[in-house]
Every structure is written in structure tokens, then in C-alpha cells.
Amino acid sequence: MDFYRTYLTGERTGYKQVIHKDIEGILAGSVDCGIILGASVIAAESLGLGTFPIGGIRKNPEEVIELLGLPKYTFPMVGLAIGYPADESHKNLEFLLAVTSIKKVTIKVLLKLLLILMMKKCQNI
């Protein structure tokens, strides 16, 4: 989560940043991280790359901040390993066939399909 850039903007414009002090800022930043993670996974996998989100980096944030040299007002929420898969086990043809065979996918149906896919991934770990 990155509030450093908004901090710098506030410094340049004379406004004091306060969003990092409020739960609303933390919630909005967390949602943004989830959106970015999802988009990154889709982009990587569209290029034939495999992905593996790493949520455990929140257990030792100080070490991650130091290792990556993160500035103040940033917090590591999730990591994402990206690389070429060693095998084809990362592909879920059932999910792709289900989505492509439905002409009009409602949000409710799409969420159910995503939940099924996530549950299958968790079982394979």
C-alpha cells in the first residue's frame, strides 16, 4: 500500500496528508492492492506466465520494507511471484470452458465460477 506519493504531493501543494491515519484510507488502500493484484495476475497469465500471490509478507513487514527499501507511508500488503511454469498444472480448462460457453455471464455467476476456481487452487497447494 503506497501513501508515499500522496504524501509528496501534499508536501508540494501545502496540504497535510491524513488518509494514512484513518481506517478509510487503510480500507481503500487494501481494496486498491487487491485490484492491482488481480490485474497483475491476469496480465501475467495472458502472456503465458504463472503467478503465485504471497500474502505471508505481512507477517514481517519491517523486514520486507528494509529489503525492498520502501519509503515511509508504504506497507507491503502482498507479494506476487511471476515466472514460467515448470508444467501445465496451472491451467484450469474447466473454468475456461465454463466461461466461454456462457454468452451472458452475470456478476453472480462469474463470482461463483471464481470461487470454485479459487477453492480448486487451494486444494492443490
Rank of each mutant, 00 (worst) to 15 (best):
Q17A: 10
G29I: 09
E45S: 08
L8Y: 02
D32E: 07
D32K: 08
K112L: 10
G38S: 00
G50Y: 00
K108E: 10
K104D: 11
A39H: 13
L93T: 12
I65A: 07
I116G: 01
L8V: 12
A86M: 12
S46I: 08
P76C: 09
R5E: 09
I23A: 09
E63Q: 15
I42P: 00
S89I: 02
G34Y: 00
Q17F: 10
N92C: 05
I54V: 13
Y4R: 12
L97W: 03
A86Q: 01
I19Y: 11
R58L: 10
Y15D: 13
G25S: 06
M1S: 12
Y15V: 12
E66Y: 01
A81N: 02
Q123T: 06
A44Q: 04
R5G: 02
L49H: 11
N124R: 13
N60D: 08
V31A: 05
L67P: 06
E94H: 04
D2L: 00
A28S: 07
D2Q: 00
G14C: 11
S89P: 03
Q123I: 12
E11D: 14
E45W: 08
A28Q: 07
A43N: 07
K120A: 14
G55S: 08
T106N: 06
S30M: 15
D87F: 01
G14P: 12
P53H: 05
K72E: 15
G79R: 00
I19M: 07
S30N: 05
R12Q: 15
P53C: 10
L110K: 07
D2E: 03
L113P: 09
R5P: 03
L8C: 11
V18K: 03
K121T: 13
V78A: 06
E94M: 02
L68Y: 12
G38I: 06
L49I: 13
Q17D: 06
V99M: 03
V105R: 09
A44R: 06
G48F: 02
V78D: 01
R5I: 12
M1Q: 11
I102Q: 03
I54L: 12
E24A: 10
K16R: 15
L117Q: 11
D87S: 07
L8T: 11
V105Y: 00
M77T: 13
L117M: 06
E63Y: 13
G38H: 02
E88A: 06
V105H: 01
M1P: 11
C33Q: 01
S30T: 05
K104M: 10
Y7C: 08
I42G: 02
S101L: 12
G56L: 10
L97H: 09
V18L: 09
A39Y: 00
Y73G: 12
Y4K: 11
I107R: 14
I23N: 05
T6C: 04
A44M: 08
I102C: 07
L97T: 11
K103Y: 13
A98T: 13
D32I: 03
I107H: 13
E45C: 13
L68T: 10
N60P: 15
I57G: 06
L110M: 15
L47K: 06
G38A: 10
L110H: 10
G10W: 09
A86E: 06
K121I: 05
Y73F: 11
L114R: 04
L117T: 01
L93I: 10
I116E: 01
K112I: 15
E45H: 04
S101E: 14
L93D: 13
K59Y: 07
L49E: 02
A86R: 14
